[in-house]
Design a protein around this nucleic acid. Structure first.
Lengths: 162, 162
DNA sequence: TATTGTTATACTCTATAACTATA
DNA sequence: TATAGTTATAGAGTATAACAATA
């Protein structure tokens, strides 16, 4: 009995250098999504160092690329975090020249955070790393199947969006 | 521009009482899995209070149900956490009568953690809550499609397991 | 000597609160 | 008065280290 728990780690649950999803959580979709999310978050956070980013910074740059530039308060809301958090992250990104702060002319309280060329380059590398991390976390899926997964999740999250 | 970011929260990204997945993260599967995992983890953690559990305790009981009983050190490894963490969680679970500690006769250093009847009842309620949370987080998917998602993830994570 | 469970301590991360500037 | 950005402080959560018991 006890041995079986051990075996599930040793034999079935090893993708190298990746935080693991315990095989005994296989029965619950909620548990699976929760563990998989943590595993990908933590693994990517480490791997993204190769792009001079951490996970949060990669999220911020991605959001800016897709819908930006936005204010810092909006970034905080999107990330589900507190504005003070974003200030520090943007400070760090600005220091590396990945983003720049600009005063919003229409409302001088707001700070527009805009991607720089260096930021876009780091982000491009970050996308590659993120994709590799997902592929490594789901070794049983082909690129096409990962695409199906992506589409399924998009439809699940935002049914209205076509 | 800035307005668009706001709209994405207000119009597209609201499933009530659920931590949100920013729609602007839609382009990256890694980001999507990361945000969705966090959203489900945090939401379930709150909802599970109705079963007198938190997220970690639900994970522990689930693992015990599927592959248990195991030692506390094994639980720690499976959860990817430190043994001290498990000690406290099992303390709390034992206090509520959801698990019991038994000395392993074969190796008196080990403590077997076993589910009680009350623990199984709480876990059953927890499963319902977890399923509701997933359904709420993926409003665009039918029960059948959630089953497809589950199967896809299982195959992706453990290709060897049939 | 190594491992299990446990306790106590230290640290990291995040939220809270207070402040300035602008609306 | 309310909101954006910033800073400093406090708290929660987690890991680290040290210990006793058993192997």
């Amino acid at each position: 009995m006890i041995q079986r728990v051990n075996d599930s780690i040793a034999e079935e649950n090893c993708f190298p250098a990746l935080a693991s999803v315990p095989h005994c959580a296989r029965g619950s979709l909620g548990l699976l999504l929760s563990f998989l999310g943590s595993a990908i978050t933590e693994t990517a956070d480490g791997q993204l160092a190769a792009a001079q980013l951490n996970g949060r910074e990669y999220s911020i740059l991605s959001i800016l690329e897709t819908d930006g530039p936005g204010s810092q308060a909006e970034l905080a809301r999107l990330l589900g975090k507190v504005p003070a958090m974003v200030v520090m992250a943007v400070d760090a990104l600005e220091e590396r020249g990945f983003v720049a702060r600009e005063r919003d002319p229409g409302d001088r309280r707001r700070t527009r955070v805009v991607l720089t060329a260096a930021g876009r380059a780091a982000l491009a590398r970050g996308h590659e790393i993120a994709d590799e991390t997902v592929a490594g976390a789901l070794p049983g899926l082909s690129a096409e199947e990962r695409g199906q997964l992506h589409a399924l999740l998009q439809r699940g999250l935002w049914p209205s969006a076509t």
